[in-house]
Computed example of a mutant assay.
Amino acid sequence: MHDTRCVPAPTAATAPGRAPRPQRSPKSPTTAWLLWIFLGVFGAHRCYLGDWRTAVPMTLTLGLLGVWSLADGVVLGRRLDRSTTGRR
């Protein structure tokens, strides 16, 4: 007999040969803000939120001498919302 159950099409996360993305744990807003206040020029808040691609250049340039770090303070709330919902 022919099986007629619906099988979902593979997606990028479930395609054969690819490992599924790990679930991100919720991040504490208090910790993120404290990291930004005290270690913002080193990109510690970005490391905490899992954004390694921009944390490394931020560390190497000292947050573009503080300018990048100050700009991050403006958008850190939105970044926290995205990190807790799992969106990028």
Rank of each mutant, 00 (worst) to 15 (best):
M1C: 12
D3K: 10
D3M: 04
T4V: 12
T4M: 14
R5A: 13
C6M: 14
V7W: 15
V7H: 15
V7Y: 15
P8W: 11
A9E: 15
P10Y: 10
T11N: 08
T14S: 05
A15R: 13
P16Q: 15
P16D: 15
G17L: 01
G17H: 10
G17Q: 13
R18H: 14
P20G: 03
P22N: 13
P22K: 10
P22L: 11
P26Y: 10
W33V: 09
L34D: 02
L34E: 08
L35C: 05
W36H: 01
F38M: 04
L39W: 07
L39A: 13
G40Y: 04
V41F: 09
F42R: 12
F42Y: 12
G43S: 00
H45W: 04
R46C: 01
C47D: 09
C47T: 09
Y48R: 01
L49V: 06
D51P: 11
A55T: 04
M58G: 02
M58Q: 02
M58E: 00
T59H: 08
L60W: 02
L62D: 10
L64W: 12
W68L: 08
W68P: 01
S69P: 02
S69M: 07
L70A: 10
A71W: 06
A71V: 15
A71E: 06
V74M: 02
V75R: 04
V75D: 00
R78A: 12
R78H: 11
R78F: 04
R79A: 07
R79G: 00
L80T: 01
L80A: 05
D81M: 05
D81C: 08
D81N: 11
R82N: 12
R82W: 05
S83A: 13
S83M: 08
T84L: 09
T84Q: 13
R87M: 04
R87K: 11
R87Y: 00
